[in-house]
């Protein structure tokens, strides 16, 4: 019985996940010739040329910066939400989630107008006699866009872990003489690591591969790895090179997930996965 119900999913996954993955691998490891295609590593050796490595380096750097900022902003926010200070927790949670229901492109476009030289933010700053903010079309704007768009993915998993911590454990730590700092470092933080790991992964991966944010807020001046892949498929039509970059990205992400799961230790990953 179980097998029969599983069957459609297996077909679905084979058709739309396994076959496409194999196709990507095929394109990555072949180059077209007049007679068809031959196996080759050309696409990969091209990727390891300096200009493309620089693109990769920039993508990694911006993704790491955005992830760290999300973590620094998101962890305290999750703690506040999970704490008892607010009686209307669900309202705050809703406020975090509702913007995510709006179209992602629309939200990024909004920043384009907000950050303009004569945009809303600068008009407000002028009114308060504060210096203007001119970060549109810079790396800062790209990081801002990533943090803004991906912050909920950091907050929600951490919040969900924190709110499940047994209050008795915290009380016990206090009864045994730990001050609130020690309670945090010895009890709350270790227990929240699985949520933190999910959060970091869920911010880092899209930040590494985004191409819309860097194109709109970076004014196309900061080619990231996502832009490079998009360009290969849509403009140049070099599927082989595009696929090989994608394969490199998959390997990188697998690698970073392996590191993550090392930190995660025995605990099982929770939350939105």
């Amino acid at each position: 019985m179980k097998r029969a119900t599983l069957f459609p999913y297996v077909i679905w996954m084979a058709l739309f996940i396994v076959v496409p993955m194999l196709l990507v691998l095929y394109y990555a490891f072949t180059v077209p010739t007049d007679a068809g295609a031959t196996w080759s590593l050309d696409n990969f050796s091209r990727f390891f040329e300096p200009i493309y490595l620089r693109v990769l380096g920039r993508s990694l750097r911006l993704a790491v910066i955005s992830t760290i900022i999300c973590l620094l902003l998101g962890y305290p926010a999750a703690m506040v939400m999970a704490g008892n200070a607010f009686s209307r927790k669900s309202v705050i949670l809703l406020l975090f989630v509702v913007p995510m229901w709006m179209n992602f492109l629309l939200r990024t476009y909004a920043w384009l107008t907000l950050l303009e030289r004569n945009g809303v933010i600068n008009v407000l700053l002028n009114a308060l006699r504060l210096p203007n903010l001119n970060i549109l079309y810079t790396e800062s704007a790209v990081v801002l866009g990533m943090v803004y768009n991906f912050l909920p993915f950091m907050v929600l998993p951490i919040y969900s872990v924190l709110s499940k911590i047994d209050k008795g454990v915290i009380e016990a730590a206090g009864d045994l003489g730990a001050n609130s700092f020690r309670v945090f470092t010895r009890v709350i933080f270790p227990l929240s690591v699985p949520g933190l790991v999910s959060g970091v992964t869920m911010v880092f991966m899209p930040a590494l591969t985004t191409f819309v944010i860097s194109r709109l807020l970076g004014g196309g001046q900061f080619t990231l790895i996502g832009n490079l892949i998009e360009q290969q498929f849509l403009v140049v039509g070099d599927w082989g090179f595009g696929s090989s970059i994608s394969v490199v990205m998959i390997v990188l992400i697998l690698f970073s997930m392996a590191i993550m799961s090392f930190f995660e230790g025995e605990e099982k990953s929770v939350a939105l996965w």
Binding site: I51, Y52, R54, R58, F222, T223, Q231, V235, V236, D238
Partner: peptide, 14 residues
């Protein structure tokens, strides 16, 4: 030849 254009463009943008 589009590949050469792509390369030049990537160099400019990177």
């Amino acid at each position: 030849a589009l590949r050469h254009y792509d390369r030049v463009w990537t160099e400019v943008k990177a």
